[in-house]
Design a protein around this nucleic acid. Structure first.
Lengths: 140, 140
DNA sequence: CTTGCACCTGACGTCGGCGTCAGGTTTTAG
DNA sequence: CTAAAACCTGACGCCGACGTCAGGTGCAAG
């Protein structure tokens, strides 16, 4: 496959694919004319890269993870890296879930025409003391 | 409180607080000398701002959400915005959970000295066909 | 009063993940 | 064969969330 086809199938821009290659995330061979050639699996690999990016991993972390994804073997250092990233994802998920639930509370509360109980800790604006909202935030 | 104390208590930089003010996220009064004065609740407000940032919201979205957090009232447009952001968070959470589980699979698999089953769809590098991994990804 | 830290306002730098333009080559369709 | 489409390599632009530096002011202590 050539680069345009890969880009279309993976739903990313041609520019992004060249960028991935520059970052060492995606490899290609060249045909006699100098154009990039990709195997079929490249599309799935690009999707994986996209997922990892959208998980907030920087490209250098992805670069360290991907070779392992290829071989299925992990050095102890890589295991540490993976565990650290997994923990980071856990923390971020908790934050996201929390934020989501707060927003969700806001929405349902407001739809119910409920009273004006503030949904997020706002912080006093005019010298008022902070509201002690220790609500039992519904996690999960 | 002055800006340095707020920054220390909220665990952010002084620069960040001034930036938040510039973005309309955090307000302050000024003392006769021109220095910023914050009420006690500002610390909690800054933490909220940080959470929303870490949830991936851009400052203009946060700016639209915070007034609602203050008043507890929501216009229909704001409700739409909140719902959209909530849905975005849902999607991102799904992605994160997926990535996390993949990494977790990798780790436990490797710790078990398991065989070299690739944990992430790698994409063939040398013209090999892509591995059809339709694993029953353990979500949740 | 002076020292010294905290604070002020610009303003420029940075970094990641690309978009985009310029100027040239290769491949494909007719 | 030729035009158009796809591709190539730089290289600069952008945006957001600050870091950082410069040059000046406020404030509390000895």
């Amino acid at each position: 496959m050539r680069i345009g086809e890969v880009a279309a199938k993976a739903g990313v821009s041609v520019r992004a694919l060249r960028y991935y290659e520059q970052q060492g995330l995606l490899h290609s061979t060249r045909n006699p004319g100098g154009q990039r050639q990709y195997p079929a699996g490249a599309v799935e690999r690009v999707r994986t890269i996209q997922r990892l990016y959208s998980a907030g991993l920087p490209s250098r972390t992805i670069r360290e993870i991907l070779p392992f994804a290829d071989s299925g073997e992990a050095s102890p250092e890589l295991l540490e890296l993976l565990a650290a990233e997994r923990d980071r994802l856990d923390r971020q998920m908790t934050d996201l879930r929390d934020a989501r639930n707060r927003l969700d509370d806001c929405i349902t509360e407001a739809r119910r025409q409920g009273p004006h109980r503030p949904c997020l800790p706002a912080g006093a604006l005019n010298g008022e003391e902070a509201v002690q909202r220790q609500a039992p935030t519904p996690v999960q």
